[in-house]
Design a protein around this nucleic acid. Structure first.
Lengths: 337, 337
DNA sequence: TTGTATGCGTTATCAC
DNA sequence: GTGATAACGCATACAA
């Protein structure tokens, strides 16, 4: 039987409310107590190994110091960066974090995760890297809990998000290669049907168009942002003789392309230039080091959490992107060929 | 104002008890109800957007469907694999997961995390990759909640764990290199003062001893399991001309050693053989692909969670390790030199 | 400065 | 089959 404030009150010879006020430690309430009462209570609490009962507190106060995070079933490698940002801010405000996993595709698992989170009286919900089905989005809205999506921009205005501008990412990656003299550029490994994939592809196409380069459907090889997709993509790219550069959907995809290219005896970047997307720690670790469009993942976590805690009106925003230079892109002299 | 059981009861014209029994969905209790009552209640609950109040449930039932995870402040790259295992089992049992972060070194942050978790009536606590201070371990014991440590073996018998045998890891890594003809072997990047580091170093030394190879203190370069430690280590290793092989404390360290070696124009593995520890996805991604002692991280998560849920007596155990072959170790012909 | 009384939303025990 | 009622542990309005 765990000790309660009643136990402490009985032993100390005071009322439970006294114990409650002292232990809850609110300056305004407990300031008036005699120092000896305070220290006595604290001592007894310690001796009896007293722990607060959060359920009881949350029940009576109807608020909690908990933030809910919903993650995709297979967290991407940058999810950790976002979570680090969330955790940083949360711990600064003495706020706990609970995590539930939702399948990306399975509507049922999504709902499960939403229920899990919304049944606990959380102060807010952070949804990482997922897009909800219409039904589930409706469920979220009806939950009456503040929420914000991270890393995936949402089309509907009442689903606030903090993310990169994925069109810009696609554009900037492609443009970077064009500026280095490339005109035969593939776009591989992205999950094209997804919002993110669609936007990045749009950016890619726009960059081509702005430089009078024809779009070729066979230069677009879809995937799921994975290392293996990079491997597969490279197998197909090999059959495209004029190709000189690749926009990879993620750093992982880029790593796959690079490694497979090496197996096929293509030299990076002289035979083939690669640019990644994400700018994760992986860029430095692979060889050659990867040039990549870097996203501000940590910042997404920080800003999202701050908004939720501040309880102000939640608004969507984009976090900055920048080009992180590695050694995977070569300058190409157009005149030479 | 969120809807409660009472609201539903009032509208349906039944008592709160009835609603509670039907909504809690226990076969034995609600089986006797008229189908029309059941469907009516469910319909109203849906219409009113009713959500259970977990705080109230946990308060009255004194049990919860929550598992607590305590993570080090900077989660290692394999933490995700362990968590995936935990999550898998937890979701199978309809159990939620809450996460708190503890600093590895800061006793205060550790305590904070322990409090956070133990104040919620969790069914069990999983401690990933951390070692508690004596005071904090005592606090954990006193919490009256089942717990188990994952991935770091604990010296005290009343702190159950599931981990790899780190002595064996050190031994096996070193032995693998010896079997490939190496005798001048460095041991780099491990956090030597830690339990894990100490055990692996012991294994390294024992392997050397078993093959009549003298231990050299300057062949041991400590670190913190990080990529940067690998870089630093390689800078120092360069000054050791006879060296032919390296045991890296982690795959990340190995990646650092390999990349720095390349910059210094040493060829891997012909000039220098490297073996990593962990066997993470990184092994395939870096070049050359890394030979590594692979740990069973996912299995740690699965087994630990099962034990906690089963509520049986928690016992320590070791998960298997195996050698994952890459291209970073060359066979050396002793006669040649 | 401290005590009393009440209620948070739910389940469980008993009664009908 | 269904309804009262008590209780879980705590915070707080009100009283003293």
């Amino acid at each position: 039987m765990a000790t309660t404030i009643k136990d402490i009150a009985r032993i100390a010879g005071v009322s439970p409310s006294t114990v409650s006020r002292i232990l809850s430690n609110k300056k305004t309430l407990s300031s008036g107590y005699a120092p000896e009462t305070i220290s006595k209570i604290n001592q007894i609490a310690k001796d009896l190994n007293y722990r607060k009962n959060r359920s009881a507190i949350e029940l009576v106060t109807k608020t909690s110091q908990v933030l809910g995070i919903i993650l995709p079933a297979s967290p991407t490698n940058f999810a950790q960066e976002i979570i680090a940002g969330i955790q940083k801010v949360a711990s600064l405000h003495d706020i706990d974090v609970i995590i539930a996993y939702a399948g990306e595709d399975s509507e049922l698992l999504q709902m499960q995760a939403l229920k899990t989170i919304s049944e606990r009286s959380v102060r807010g919900i952070l949804l990482l890297g997922i897009t909800l089905s219409a039904t589930n989005a409706q469920f979220l809205r009806a939950s009456d809990i503040p929420y914000i999506f991270l890393s995936v921009a949402q089309p509907e205005p009442d689903l606030p998000f903090i993310a990169s501008n994925d069109f810009d990412i696609g554009y900037q990656a492609t443009n970077y290669l064009i500026m280095h003299g490339h005109r035969e550029i593939a776009f591989v490994g992205a999950d094209i049907p997804s919002c993110v994939g669609q936007l990045r592809l749009d950016g890619y196409r726009q960059a081509l168009k702005d430089h009078q380069i024809a779009y070729r459907a066979d230069y677009v090889i879809p995937g799921n942002w994975l290392y293996e997709d990079g491997i597969q993509a490279m197998n197909m790219l090999e059959k495209l003789p004029h190709l000189t550069a690749v926009v990879a959907g993620s750093d992982l995809v880029a790593a796959g392309v690079i490694n497979r290219a090496r197996q096929l005896h293509h030299h990076i970047p002289s035979d083939l230039s690669i640019i990644g997307i994400d700018g994760t720690a992986l860029c430095d670790i692979i060889y050659p080091q990867l040039t990549s469009i870097q996203q501000s993942f940590y910042e997404m976590g920080v800003k999202g959490t701050e908004q939720l805690i501040r309880q102000a009106n939640i608004t969507s925003s984009y976090t900055p992107i920048c080009t992180k230079k590695g050694g995977s892109v070569a300058t190409r002299n157009k005149q030479n060929e």
